[in-house]
Design a protein around this nucleic acid. Structure first.
Lengths: 174, 174
DNA sequence: GCAATACTGTATGGCATCGTACAGTATGTG
DNA sequence: CACATACTGTACGATGCCATACAGTATTGC
């Protein structure tokens, strides 16, 4: 079974990483699940998110898009490239700022978005199974709080910066 | 410097992906945070997890390790390569099965694990800030449940063309 | 014994993302 | 107006992971 191993490995993983690894693997499964369902539309989660965002909020700059989807400006470029190549979005010049592209959804993109929304709705219904409304809200709240703490933790991490950790040897394995 | 963009993009992301993207970005931040703290030890989260697992549960095969850490067999190999190159773990042949390597922790690996545990403890204390015990437990419970639903959803995804969710056989013609 | 099958680890190529550096453009300051 | 600074999108290389294909080894069936 080459499919992502779906073993509930949180049960016997080292206790000092239990929550972390559960979160990580849940995120991975989430991506796999969406990607699998979206594969029928030849989209992955990132592409679908971008499409949905543009469909809902209209034309936006790439930087804006990158911020909202939580990935970098460099990465968003290639995502747009592919969607544009398929005619799902288009880049329009912005008249008063020639640095930026405005990313707009096309008709066929809008059409596809409807299918995406459908897939999304179905999948999310399945994921809600056995989980109450308050529990979902609590989950969202705790994770938001966790994000704040994470941001603080990252910001206050002692800059290992200059140490650079010197890759030293390690270089070649093999 | 180098600060990952920590924008709280969950607030205005497309509603039909809100929970999903929150989970994804939380996972990303979690990895970034751990990686940043572990950078002082020249480890990333995956390496630290592997080290911790071997330290706690003793020698294991690579396949076993891959399953428990939730990544593939191919990926685990290179992780072990690097740890081995630094003398933190070692590969021991298994006498009664010459296909497999038993991955064992070394003395210096065990020593480093103590530091890892320390980093982990500090960071987790920071992450708990403002989050009650029951809330954490609720989080863990919901995510476990979510994982089950995800696993089911993935398994029941209609195989698009070549997508082989199928069980064992069928794989190669032959 | 021998062939078929299953399993383990590795090599290879691909993908998504990151981080850095860069050229083009806008905006602010003197 | 000239210059410095900030911002946008892109190019490039690196990383971590995956899926596939493969060789070596074990196991099973006859």
């Amino acid at each position: 079974m080459s499919s992502a191993n779906l073993t509930t490995h949180e049960l016997d993983s080292p206790p000092w990483l239990r929550v972390e690894s559960t979160l990580m693997s849940t995120a991975r499964l989430l991506r796999v699940a969406f990607d699998a369902r979206l594969a029928a539309l030849d989209l992955n989660l990132t592409q679908a998110s971008l499409l949905g965002y543009v469909a809902e909020f209209g034309t936006t700059t790439q930087t804006d898009l990158a911020d909202h989807l939580g990935i970098g400006r460099a990465a968003i470029g290639s995502v747009i490239d592919r969607l544009q190549a398929r005619g799902l979005v288009e880049r329009q010049p912005k008249t008063d700022d020639r640095r930026v592209w405005l990313v707009a959804i096309t008709d066929s993109g809008r059409e596809l978005t409807a299918h995406v929304a459908e897939v999304d709705e179905v999948l999310r219904a399945e994921l809600r199974h056995g989980i109450g409304r308050e529990e979902r809200q609590a989950l969202a709240w705790v994770m938001t709080r966790l994000q704040q703490n994470l941001a603080t933790a990252i910001a206050t991490t002692v800059p290992t910066s200059t140490t650079r950790i010197s890759t030293t040897s390690t270089g070649e394995q093999q």
